[in-house]
Design a protein around this nucleic acid. Structure first.
Length: 468
RNA sequence: GGCGCGGUAGCCAAGUGGUAAGGCCGAGGUCUGCAAAACCUCUAUGCGUCGGUUCAAUUCCGACCCGCGCCUCCA
């Protein structure tokens, strides 16, 4: 079964396949702006894209997928932070790039093959703008900024249907405040390719044929995609909010510059909501991985939570969903422990292909809820009859859960208890062995009061922190 | 105002023109000094409302109600 994915441009579900002769699937995924910790809404998109990457590698082979994800390390926000903190831009972006990488690792997101930065590709961006100028798709404004001339690209709006949007200049659209650069542009829908240097930009400026300045936001993806993947890529993805104007503008720039189709396939994942509202930096209702770690939720639990909903549907994040995810993941871990211990005994049993349905659900437009459902169906069948569980089934389980869905098993982080807790636990264990159950119960109460739960096994015990 | 998405059990969430996957929670059970874990069993005559098409609709069509996103930086 081939991988099929909804295409935002064609507005239908279409098969994913490499279009180049070398058979390498070219995948570009819009990355973060590195000026603050990414929140779990951002990570929903990155986790979804990580599963796409993993699925592509399963389908085409690990060396037949090239995954590029950029880092936006120069823009209004990064510069503002650098100015506010009186630190060089590169230092600020390095800090948050490192943090982003650490969070991605914790969430089991595979690093992209190339992770280009905007500041590392100034030349490529200037070159591209230069071509657009020469072709008449761009113009230089009096202040030295360069804008893309939207009216020069007849297909502008094909992704977001923006033309239909502008037909009605009715209510809120017309009452919006004018953009700061409105005076410089020939038309309100034109967008900046190159921004002339302003005092607020400080040292963050580069020379160009149009004067000192810095690149506009959209051009970086077009330039970096072109450099690392070529003029035409197989899949371009990001969050829905990038659909307009970012991706619409990328199409305009790239197709005008290169004279060929930019991306064969466009994919947009929906937003994560918190308490029914979009999670965003401006609203301030965001959680970072660290916020959740502080409440003792592991990154694996977060990953599971982010995969509980269909990626093209908004997902409402709640602490209930986190608890639910944690329990489900615990079940997966328990199953894994069990079958890891017994699978060797079932070498002669033929494969049952019970886990095929999991992968097929994923191949069918990334249906995570269905895939997770099929996973538990398979597990339940196996639990009820281990005699038919084969070695092949074991590997199929591992492949689906670990390689493709990208969970680590065991995924429940074991927190090391403080010495005083361990001492209490030792005392209780000794009391229990001596059949002093009264004493043992009293010590359990002490542990509970201290926030720890003691789980007795046959030959020992485990300590787990109680959830806040 | 325009563009788009959604409303399925206490919560989350798939799905199909022929009568509702799965997870969480809850209840009962097995096990256990206790507690937990693990496993087993059970839990929607019903899929926002009202009409229509059909032998048959939650699934198709229409209207309406409600929620959310985008149209401005944004995953």
């Amino acid at each position: 079964m081939p991988i099929r994915l909804f295409d935002s441009l064609a507005r239908e579900t279409r098969e994913l396949k490499p279009s180049h002769a070398d058979g390498v699937f070219r995948f570009y995924n819009c990355g973060p702006t590195v000026y603050a910790p990414a929140h779990i809404g951002n990570f929903r998109t990155f986790v979804v894209n990580d599963v796409i990457r993993r699925l592509l590698e399963l389908e085409f082979g690990p060396d037949k997928v090239k995954h590029v994800r950029n880092l936006t390390d120069v823009d209004d926000k990064t510069i503002r932070r650098s100015r506010d903190e009186k630190r060089p831009l590169a230092e600020v972006t390095k800090q948050w790039t490192d943090k982003f990488h650490a969070d991605c690792t914790a969430l089991n997101c595979l690093p992209p093959h190339v992770e280009p930065t905007a500041t590392g590709h100034i030349v490529e961006q200037v070159d591209m703008i230069d071509v657009l100028m020469k072709k008449g798709n761009a113009y230089r404004a009096p202040d030295g900024s360069v804008y893309f001339k939207v009216s020069s690209f007849s297909e502008y709006g094909k992704l977001s249907r923006v033309k239909e949007r502008e037909l009605q200049l009715g209510s809120s659209f017309a009452t919006k405040p004018q953009a700061a650069d409105a005076d410089e542009k020939e038309d309100v829908s034109d967008f900046a390719l190159w921004k002339a240097h302003k005092d607020d930009d400080g040292e963050n400026a580069w020379e160009s044929p149009w004067g000192r300045g810095r690149p506009g936001w959209h051009i970086e993806c077009s330039a970096m995609s072109k450099k690392h993947l070529g003029d035409t890529i197989d899949l371009h993805s990001g969050g829905v909010d990038l659909l307009f104007p970012h991706h619409e503008n990328e199409i305009a720039q790239s197709e005008c510059c290169n004279g060929t189709q930019f991306a064969h396939h466009w994919y947009h994942s929906e937003h994560l909501l918190v308490d029914g509202k979009k999670m965003s930096k401006s609203l301030g209702n965001l959680y970072t991985l660290d916020d959740l770690k502080a409440r003792r939720f592991s990154p694996q639990t977060v990953r599971y939570t982010l995969l509980m909903g269909h990626p093209r549907k908004q997902l409402n994040f709640t602490f209930d969903s986190l608890y639910s995810a944690e329990s489900a993941l615990g079940k997966l871990n328990a199953f894994n422990d069990k079958v890891s211990a017994i699978y060797g005994m079932s070498l002669r049993v033929p494969p049952s292909n019970k886990f095929d349905a999991v992968l097929d659900a994923l191949r069918d437009d990334l249906n995570f809820p269905s895939a997770l459902g099929e996973l538990f169906v398979a597990i339940k069948q196996i639990e009820s009859n281990f005699s038919e569980f084969s070695c092949a089934d074991f590997f199929a389980f591992k492949q689906a859960v670990t390689s493709v869905l990208g969970f680590s098993l065991p995924g429940i982080a074991q927190e090391v208890p403080p010495d005083i807790i361990t001492a209490l636990a030792e005392k209780r264990w000794a009391a229990k062995k001596a059949k002093d159950f009264k004493g043992a119960d009293a010590l359990r109460a002490e542990l509970t009061a201290a926030g720890w739960s003691m789980l007795d096994g046959k030959d020992g015990y485990k300590l787990e922190p109680l959830k806040k």
